[in-house]
Amino acid sequence: MIPIVVDTFAEAFPMTAARAILTADTPAWAETAARTMSGYATSVIACDAEAALERILDPAETPDGRPGCSVLVFAFSRDALEKSLTNRVGQCVMTCPTSACYNGLPVAEKSIVVGGRLRYFGDGWQISKWIGERRYWRIPVMDGEFLCEEAFGTVKGVAGGNLIVMGNDPSRTLAATESAVQAIRARCRDVILPFPGGIARSGSKVGSKYRALRASTNTAFAPMLRGVVTTDLPAEATCAYEIVIDGLTMEAVERATAVGVQTAAGQPGVLGVTAGNYGGNLGPFHIRLLDVLDRYGEPV
């Protein structure tokens, strides 16, 4: 049975994004910093930002020549991003042994201040250094000093790109979705998949019967509600997993979507791949699955 790629689109939103390069004396501490910093950052429905490790970096790629990671962080505004990033770097990176934190995007006019806010932790003993065109803060800490860049460049990124993998066997469907996640992580730059392991199982729809909630469970893809509500699942489907993609550019999200769809669709047990949208009324960016497969999918 050939899995169906539904002719639908993912509906994505603009979000402001920044990239942090974290380094440490060892790869393990760099990754610890990255993972801690991107904790509790799956969805801005209830988190201050969406963030995840983007890539493990080779020492040759980092500013100070140490092992490192890059992390992308997305928020709804520059102000929100500045606040979130400052808090996350302050609580999760500055605290992390041997770490340092650098800006990973070009600094244009639209930048946010991070090191320039965290410096006050130095209690007057912080030291500023301009190196090239960039400013860094050296904040004394208990294993030496925490080096953090003053300003971080931001871009208008795209968040909420997604694909939903549907199947009739939960374990095989999950395995297929995992392989899609791996493929995206291996082959795509400038994107993160902010949910646990890159996968969300509680997809959501906008609104709720409860006034206080902005979102609620995606009833159309909840198999156990089949029969009580209108479903978007194929008849045999018993489960669905969603991959949410945030990227620095539309193109990056589209490529990742194509990679994800193509990878998932080729796996056993997958009945179909679709995407979540809200009828096109909410997000300005529409990522039509068949279209991105056309443009970015690899020839079968």
Binding site: G65, K129, Y136, E145
Partner: peptide, 16 residues
Amino acid sequence: RFRPQFLALIERELRR
């Protein structure tokens, strides 16, 4: 006695 990161940054910048 320390090994400060900022000097590595300066080194890289000066080499550049």
